[in-house]
Design a protein around this nucleic acid. Structure first.
Length: 501
RNA sequence: GCCGCCUUAGCUCAGUUGGUUAGAGCGCCUGAUUGUGGAUCAGGAGGUCCCUGGUUCGAGCCCAGGAGGUGGUACCA
């Protein structure tokens, strides 16, 4: 006899960076997705859904290399192909558009929602699987498309319960930032006479500058100043290399980042003044002016959508306008410290993404709403009625009358009332009410032989009962002030009254 | 990836200078009440003190290494 090998029990745990969603968490998100989708639909976007798995090749430059095969994405090899879970909705859209471009209308406008996956270190409120809800317009370079996206984003936020004034959509333009960098580095690296290695170094440095500017929100002027010049030490004593710019160069950049004026018109004027005669930066400013004008005439005020030169949105694939939605109200974390929620949505124009597939430049612009973050923000703010209504529980007094109890829930269900018969062991009656309590049931139905003989049921208002219990003495409590008797044929009507309260 | 902090019951945490049987609150289960949620009272279950090795007569406590968690930071389509 072989020794029976004890197989270790599997640990019941969610993998790191993932989580489970129960009851109201699922329905709340479904409702939010539906609200956002309705706005997108109203704006004329078409519903669309693609597979969660793409070839790594189609997803883009993030090829898993030999050393770090899973860096960033969840990828695996199948025969000779590398496959991966999508990490956003935009890269799949570029693939789909390139693939079906002959059959799709032009411009193509679609919205889509679903989970995306990122294989990276999870943080507080940051998971490796999360929901996004995207809308994009592919095939037009018109700034009207960008303006529309911003307007729609504003509508979405208000639709899900964030009133005007509690959010702001900040708009910037990559072309302006690049114009600033041209100014700093003294030449356009794309020109003919540029030395190749110098171009490379400069481009690297430009990326680093963008990264530093992106942290303006987090570290403030001083922090970015340090990052741009000599480097910065964080709270834990870790040191981040600086970009080694001169103080003058850093100051020029910071002047742009802080160029926001009291109104969009002032901001635009500031940007023009700072850019002087420099080339491509001014194109960007002109685009910002167009977007701002379009939004103002569409009725979106500058307390909702503002031009803010400090918006960067990563290095990314963005080529023109970029947008970011931020919640402006303060929330507190578990320890009561005020916390900044950061951005809940973002997007921008990416004119080169489809080109990877087709070789032709296809202008496109779109937005992505981080649904989980938005939900978390609403929760933290207490703007979500978390009280999920449980079912009416029909208790079991007499197991031989099961068919009568089933008839009761059938009546309730036919009347549209969420209800169920207690299916656990009915021996201990107290447990049945405790169960109803735990389920957040609004009411329980009670009927034993006594009630059946007289063709009545007891209805117990559990919400009222809980309220009474807070103050009542034992004797008052035992008196069952929240319970009353009704004829069987009035059960549905009386329960409906309770539910409507 | 880098830096810091942490790891004892389902949860939140005590645990003295290294000392014998590791505790509390909350939660859970049972009963007082087999036809009634809360409160109260009585009782009960629940532990690989993260792992491995070392020091010691003796380790939850000291030392070394590892793992996991967490906070910051870096990267982030």
């Amino acid at each position: 006899m072989a020794k029976p090998k004890k197989t270790p029990r599997p640990k019941a745990e969610t993998p790191k960076g993932f989580r489970d969603y129960f009851g109201a968490e699922v329905t709340e998100r479904a409702e939010m997705l539906q609200k956002i989708a309705r706005v997108y639909h109203r704006y004329g976007f078409d519903a669309f859904e693609s597979s969660a798995v793409e070839t790594v090749e189609a997803l883009g430059k993030f090829l898993p290399d030999v050393d770090r095969p899973n860096e960033g994405v969840f990828a695996w090899q199948e025969d000779d192909d590398w496959l991966a879970l999508r990490y956003d909705m935009t890269a799949p859209l570029a693939r789909v558009y390139a693939q079906h471009r002959n059959d799709l209308p032009n411009p193509y406008r679609r919205y889509t929602m679903g989970p995306v996956w990122r294989n990276e270190k999870p943080g507080p409120g940051r998971f490796r699987q999360f929901y996004q809800c995207d809308a994009d317009t592919v095939g037009t370079a018109s700034m009207a498309a960008d303006a529309e996206i911003c307007a729609m984003l504003s509508d979405c936020l208000e639709e899900v319960g964030i009133p005007r004034g509690d959010y702001v959509i900040r708009v910037n333009n990559r072309k302006v930032l690049n114009g600033v960098l041209d100014l700093i580095f003294g030449f356009d690296s794309k020109s003919e006479d540029a030395v190749l290695s110098a171009v490379y170094d400069t481009e690297m440095q430009k990326d680093e500058v963008l990264r530093a500017v992106d942290k303006y929100d987090k570290f403030g002027r001083e922090g970015v100043q340090l990052l741009l010049t000599t480097g910065r030490e964080d709270a834990s004593g870790d040191f981040t290399e600086g970009v080694n710019l001169t103080a003058d160069q850093a100051a020029t950049i910071l002047n742009f980042v802080e160029a926001r004026g009291a109104s969009n018109a002032t901001t635009i004027k500031n940007l023009e003044d700072l850019l002087g005669a420099a080339g491509r930066g001014l194109d960007g400013v002109e685009e910002l002016r167009t977007i701002s004008d379009l939004l103002l005439s569409a009725g979106y005020a500058e307390d909702q959508i503002i031009i803010d030169p400090s918006v960067v949105r990563g290095l990314g694939y963005y080529t023109g306008p970029v947008y970011e939605a931020e919640l402006t109200f303060e929330i507190e974390d578990e320890k009561g410290r005020p916390r900044n929620f950061g951005s809940v949505a973002g997007g921008g124009r990416y004119d080169d993404l489809v080109k990877r597939f087709t070789g032709q430049e296809v202008p496109a612009t779109g937005v992505s709403i981080g649904v989980d973050r938005l939900l978390a923000a609403l929760h933290a703010k207490g703007r979500l009625d978390t009280q999920s209504a449980g079912p009416v529980v029909v208790t079991v007094m007499d197991r031989d009358r099961m068919s009568d109890y089933q008839a009761m829930v059938a009546d309730l269900r036919n009347a549209g009332i969420r209800s169920e018969v207690y299916l656990g062991n009915p021996k201990n009656f107290g447990n049945q009410l405790r169960y109803a309590d735990k389920r957040d049931s609004p009411a329980a139905v009670i009927a034993g032989s006594d009630e059946f003989d007289r063709n009545v049921v007891q209805i117990k208002d559990l919400i009222l009962g809980a309220k009474i219990a807070e103050t009542a003495s034992l004797e008052e409590w035992k008196d069952r002030p929240s319970q009353f008797e009704v004829p069987r044929d009035q059960m549905v009507a009386r329960l409906r009254e309770i539910l409507e309260k």
